[in-house]
Nucleic acid binder design. Structure first.
Length: 529
RNA sequence: GGGCGCAUAGCUCAAUGGAAGAGCAGCGGCCUUUUAAGCCGUUGGUUGCAGGUUCGAGUCCUGCUGCGCCCA
């Protein structure tokens, strides 16, 4: 991408840079000083004020970005902003002299980084303010910040530009910065909880020779020296469960998954996932644990168990609703899936109800379509839907006495799938049979198919303790806790289609995977997120 | 993948098929307590891209690109 040409506004600022350098002033100096953040300066001043009229002055050197400038002849007011807040600067000819004030007015623009030294006082209107004795340019901005001053219209509202230039979005929108602080708190709270419950945090491969643990199309890449095709992981599951074989009893990983699929308000090609596995737990144990974990996270991050999401009040306090998939579908559609145990029968029943089910390769996949179409959007309060069909859950253990149903639940909240869990299949013979079933049910290029991972079977043959596992989308949890409708609002740099004029040169690295038909509502195995 | 919608100055937005505008920002000036400061003056446009209809297109039509919403 070649550098674009400068706009007239930018050319004006480039001229200022030249003129400053001509005066021997470096607009991008190497050193900066700061004794107080804006917040510390104000707090120190308020503290000193308590000592009455004889309080000592509060000297301070602050640094930040100019966000507003009001020139009034021999006085200039300005506001600087740092990460912690804003502070008004008071620049007066009395302290600075005519030349310095003129220099400020001429060369400093909104968006520039500035260092200012002086002492705190109150203006006539009562605002704690720094009376500036000296100042220094720390970094000159060439491109004007969008909507540098507040206007009646909402500033910088074009979502495309906001995502493409997230740095500018963050620079002018403190509320956007707050979302990402909350996101960090959520991750920290999850770690705190899991660490306190005896879990070991681990890191497993992102580049994998065989992808698995979910039903999704992978990104493919290639290691040149090994001459080996590799996949970016679509889940952590198979590696984390190998660790249970290795005698870690409780493990978790928080990291990035990659799925080469559609993009929507709740899908990004790379997203952040939590998965944990607990030896000697089953899916009901995991339900209890997840309920407690997310209450703990909410308490730590939000300070309470209620929050509002898209006009709803979600309450984590009451015991979360638990309903079987069969009952959930019966309630929502009037169809009892136990009375329609084949794909054909279920399709017929749906059509009799006036629905038009899309073609699906199996009974289980049709059930999942029904769930996401008729049930999921209405599950606002936290709800566990459990007992899933076997053919879409090849890593979950069957229910005793009901081999076609597996011990699996999905957690829904705010009308979205948030998490997914099983009593994990630990029988290597059954697991092998499941992989083979997958091969029969789905075409070789169907992304729903789980490729047979012989090394995973080998691990299981050594003996894997019974265990329960759970996966959850951190992005979606952040959407809930920050009341954001779009996943792009909680991902710093979401993927957008590249614009024609900044297309990157093609690199001869890998061939694209076989092209299955795109369908973003596909069922996935673990963490369809 | 389908439907609907949006794309005009740096930002936010106007403009019945008939002279491309406003506010903010910028630039020049006035102003010693402002808070979206105020006042005077002023610069700034290949109306996303490519075609078409028309005496005339920001506006109507077709295609493309990007984004949003809804659906699958």
């Amino acid at each position: 991408m070649s550098p674009r040409s400068y706009t007239p506004l930018e050319q004006e600022r480039l001229r200022k840079i030249e003129q400053m350098r001509a005066q021997g002033i470096e607009p991008y100096p190497n050193r900066a000083e700061r004794t107080h953040t804006t917040r510390q300066a104000i707090e120190a001043f308020l503290e000193a004020e308590k000592q009455g009229p004889d309080a000592p002055t509060v000297p301070a050197t602050v640094a930040g970005r100019l966000r507003a400038v009001r020139q009034m002849g021999k006085i200039t007011f300005a506001h600087i902003e740092d990460e912690h807040g804003r502070l008004q600067l008071f620049l007066r000819v009395n302290e600075l002299g005519k030349e310095r004030l003129k220099f400020f007015n001429k060369f400093f623009d909104i968006g520039d980084f500035i260092q200012a030294q002086g002492e705190m006082f109150r203006t006539r209107t009562g605002e704690p303010t720094l009376r500036v004795h000296d100042f220094k340019m720390l970094a000159k901005a060439i491109t004007p910040l969008p909507a540098a001053k507040k206007t009646k219209h909402s500033p910088f509202s074009d979502p495309e530009l906001r995502y493409r230039q997230r740095y500018a979005d963050l620079a002018v929108h403190p509320e956007v910065r707050q979302i990402f602080r909350t996101r960090a708190k959520i991750v920290r709270a999850l770690r705190n909880y899991l660490d306190a419950h005896g879990f070991l945090e681990v890191e497993t491969p992102i580049l994998q020779p065989i992808y698995g643990g979910a039903a999704a199309r992978p990104f493919v890449t290639y290691h040149n020296q090994l001459k080996q095709q590799l996949y970016l992981r679509i889940s952590f599951e198979l590696y984390l469960k190998r660790l249970l074989v290795g005698m870690f009893e409780r493990v978790y990983e928080i990291g990035r998954d990659f799925r080469n699929e559609g993009i929507s308000f709740k899908h990004n090609p790379e997203f952040t996932q939590l998965e944990f596995y607990m030896a000697y737990a089953d899916y009901f144990t995991v339900m209890d644990f997840v309920e407690d974990m997310l209450r703990s996270v909410a308490q730590e991050v939000l300070g309470g168990l209620q929050f509002s999401y898209q006009g709803h009040t979600i309450d984590l306090a009451p015991r979360w609703k638990r309903i079987t998939m069969r009952d959930a579908l019966l309630e929502a559609t009037g169809i009892d899936i136990q009375q329609h145990r084949t794909l054909e029968a279920l399709n017929t029943a749906l059509r009799e109800q006036g629905h038009q089910p899309p073609p699906k390769p199996s009974w289980g996949k049709l059930l999942d379509w029904m769930l996401s179409t008729f049930v999921e959007p209405n599950l606002i309060q936290p709800t566990f839907v459990y007992d899933y069909p076997r053919d879409i859950s090849p890593l979950a253990k069957s229910k005793p006495g009901d081999p076609q149903t597996v011990e699996r639940f999905e957690l829904f909240m705010g009308g979205m799938e948030l998490g997914n869990a099983f009593t994990e299949l630990n029988d290597p013979l059954d697991q092998e049979a499941r992989f083979l079933e997958q091969g029969r049910t789905y075409a070789a290029d169907d992304e729903e198919r789980h490729p047979l991972d012989e090394d995973y079977l080998q691990a299981m043959r050594y003996g894997m303790p019974p265990n329960g596992g759970f996966g959850m989308g951190i992005d979606r949890l952040t959407m809930l806790f920050t009341d954001q409708h779009s996943i792009r609002e909680v991902i710093l740099f979401p993927h957008l289609r590249s614009k024609a004029d900044d297309a990157q040169p093609q690199r001869a690295a890998s061939s694209p995977p076989e092209d299955a038909d795109a369908d973003t509502t596909r069922t996935s195995e673990k963490e369809r997120l």
